[in-house]
């Protein structure tokens, strides 16, 4: 049984006195069975069908970038669970690389900080970072708003979503947020097994037992992350020299720490780690079992590495495959609008 948030119903109640403002259609947000309560507050920016559709159009629109070539979707592709398929670093404006691996976008309503270093404190303002980064979308926020204002279709859609034709950064960001919030991934084989609808095969089941014993303290079920920042023993990339969370907190103890990523849809989101250095899961497991690099801030749980036999790794990889959610990666609600 799924809990349905009624928060979205709030939208209409106050708008009656607004005269000619068009009515909006609330969208309900479903929490998959077994998932905890969301961290996102849906009351401040209730999700509506109109806001969601506007957000979807914006997400796929190159107008948000300087040269028109880099919509959000250029680095966040649905078939890769909204990560960048097959790229360690993504490509941005004027033949430039991004500096980190694009994470998949889903279950964002359960996060309160965003980016590998947790540098963004609210999903609504996250898009400002890639839109304005010179090596990503490279655009000025005023310029984006101006471009949208020139487009009659947008004027209509902003009116449908927010009552008037006014286009400003706040409305744009709120619409993008509505779209991204609805990306819930909770229907993988793992979820079906948990719901008693399917069963693991022997390799998956054995892998799951190893996972619970050796991985689950950081990759906590059911979101498969504890949302903490940890140094998992990666040698510093001498070109990127990425200090991780220290860049945000300016604290030495946060040096080389990065957000523990979810493992959901992990088959779709390769390559792995904040800089995409590992191209497959064998390399990842090899790192944890033999490759841990010692440093001052190395996570205590990894001081002795994670001993894994070849069979353990085989079974773990089978288990991780059960975290792929094709009903999400093929969900028609999130595809590029016509």
């Amino acid at each position: 049984m799924a809990l349905v948030l009624t928060g979205a119903l709030l939208t209409e109640s106050c708008r009656k006195s607004d005269g000619g403002a068009p009515a909006t259609t609330p969208m309900s947000f479903t929490i998959p069975q077994g998932f905890p309560a969301t961290k996102h507050d849906f009351t401040a920016n209730p999700v509506t069908k109109e806001g969601f559709e506007l957000g979807r159009k914006l997400f796929y629109d190159g107008k948000l970038s300087k040269d028109g070539n880099f919509p959000c979707a250029s680095c966040h592709q649905q078939f890769a669970a909204f990560a960048t398929f097959d790229h360690d670093l993504s490509h941005g404006f004027n033949n430039q690389f991004t500096t980190r691996n694009a994470p998949g976008l889903f279950n964002l309503a359960w996060q309160s900080n965003f980016h590998w270093d947790g540098g963004i404190n609210n999903l609504e303002v996250q898009p400002l970072a890639p839109i304005t980064a010179p090596n990503e979308m490279a655009e000025d926020i005023n310029a984006v708003v101006e471009k949208l204002k020139q487009d009659e279709k947008y004027r209509t859609m902003f009116r449908s979503a927010f009552g008037t034709e006014e286009i400003n950064s706040q409305r744009m960001l709120k619409a993008l947020t509505q779209f991204m919030l609805m990306m819930t991934s909770g229907n993988s084989k793992y979820d079906k097994v948990k719901r008693g609808e399917e069963t693991f095969n022997i390799a998956e089941q054995t892998g799951y037992e190893i996972f619970k014993a050796k991985c689950a303290s950081c990759h906590v079920e059911p979101l498969f992350t504890d949302h903490s920042y940890r140094n998992n023993g990666l040698a510093v990339n001498s070109f990127l020299k990425d200090p991780g969370r220290m860049r945000i907190t300016n604290k030495k103890e946060d040096s080389l720490k990065f957000k523990v990523p979810t493992l959901r849809n992990i088959y779709e989101t390769y390559p792995y780690m904040h800089d995409g250095r590992f191209w497959n899961l064998s390399q990842v497991l090899e790192h944890y079992s033999t490759g841990i690099n010692q440093s001052n801030t190395l996570d205590p749980l990894l001081q002795n590495k994670i001993p894994l036999t070849a069979t353990d790794k085989f079974n773990l990889i089978y288990f991780l495959g059960t975290l792929s959610d094709t009903s999400f990666t093929k969900d028609k609600r999130f595809v590029q609008p016509l």
């Binding site: 401040a44 920016n45 609210n122 999903l123 609504e124 303002v125 400002l128 926020i141 005023n142 708003v145 400003n168 950064s169 706040q170 409305r171 744009m172 960001l173 709120k174 947020t177």
Partner: peptide, 11 residues
């Protein structure tokens, strides 16, 4: 508190 407008518009 997320996206703001008016005097607090990030633009």
């Amino acid at each position: 508190s997320g996206a703001q407008t008016g005097a607090l518009d990030p633009a």
